[in-house]
Design a protein around this nucleic acid. Structure first.
Lengths: 197, 197
DNA sequence: GTCTATAAGTAGATAGAC
DNA sequence: GTCTATCTACTTATAGAC
């Protein structure tokens, strides 16, 4: 039966996070008010504080959740094979994961400056963990002589930047599908690191 | 002689823009107040409105100025030579231009969502003009058979994304100088498009 | 768990004195 | 051109009723 007030914790909690993610991605953390989030969730602003200690906690929770999700998914996908195969798996994983949740990527990269110092440090540490996965692959391939790299550290950051850009233009109903995008970016990355076909 | 009030148009105007650029880049447009800008400029908030009709106009002016600057600088640099040489010139120009003004790049890419629709459309048009420079080079090289490209449009966006990432990690006092960075990124781009050395 | 009401502070922008 | 003062609206967050 319909109620305008009462217990809805099981549906409201996830909804708050989903709405906040969407609004933060679209307008930016600082530009979105708690009242705006509440309105889209369908509650009054005060009710939000049953699910987050404050606005900063909500942002932190979203970013931390995203980093944990991607690290967990990466571990589950982690592939065997030589450095080239591992790089291909990483590239396609990264693209597929983020095209499925572009808003999480937007927030995670654009709202770092809105994190309080302690929160910033924690997210940065998780991000480095993730980037180290790629750097490890590049370093291994370079050591084995299958990659041509001037600098594994910079190459890592350059590749991540290139891959992240995909969420800026990709549209699910556009001319390219996920498979096409994976192939195009994998081709560019493979050549960029000098790996033979 | 020192004055606490009076005519300072020639120094205040540029200072307002410089302070706003720095604060917008650091904290984000929505998170920065006019009072904050005024305080760093050394005037009261009301005085800012002698230099901008409103906060949105200030953001728009900064972004438009940056796009005009880069298009103008690009024209002045525009090189002769084959597609590979032109690509090299573009890559090094892009890196050098933005490493000299990282804040302008931050604002231009992160604050697009804070532009009112009409302003957004104008900035996007200028950005496309710039990206078309690169796309033209890639298309020419692909037609001549000196580049290996799956998709010139996507390759353009991927390369721009990769190059823009440089401002996220570069530090003037770091282990790499501008020349090093140009070489590393040019190497990756050259290989990414399949151009011979 | 959600509501209403409210506290306490800050936002963008303007008016008029100097 | 800059100041002070102010208007109106909105901000995050909390208190207490239901």
């Amino acid at each position: 039966m319909a109620r305008t007030a009462g217990s809805h914790a099981e549906t409201t909690g996830p909804k708050v996070r989903a709405v906040a993610l969407r609004l933060f991605a679209r307008y930016g953390y600082a530009a979105v008010s708690m009242r705006q989030i509440a309105a889209e969730v369908g509650v009054q602003a005060g009710a939000l504080y049953n699910y987050t200690p404050d606005k900063q906690g909500l942002l932190m929770s979203l970013m931390q959740g995203h980093m944990h999700d991607i690290l967990e998914a990466r571990q589950a996908t982690s592939s065997e094979g030589d450095a080239v195969q591992q790089l291909e798996a990483f590239v396609k994983f990264h693209i597929g994961f983020h095209l499925a949740r572009p808003e999480a990527l937007f927030v995670s990269y654009m709202e770092l400056r809105n994190l309080e110092p302690q929160n910033f440090a924690r997210i940065e540490a998780l991000r480095r963990d993730y980037e180290n996965e790629l750097e490890g692959i590049l370093a291994r391939g370079a050591a084995e002589g299958v990659f041509t790299l001037d600098d594994p550290k910079i190459s890592t950051l350059a590749i991540i930047s290139m891959l992240n850009g995909v969420v800026n233009w990709f549209r699910p109903d556009g001319r390219l599908g996920l498979g096409d995008v994976e192939q195009i970016y994998w081709g560019m990355v493979r050549r960029a690191v000098g790996a033979a076909e």
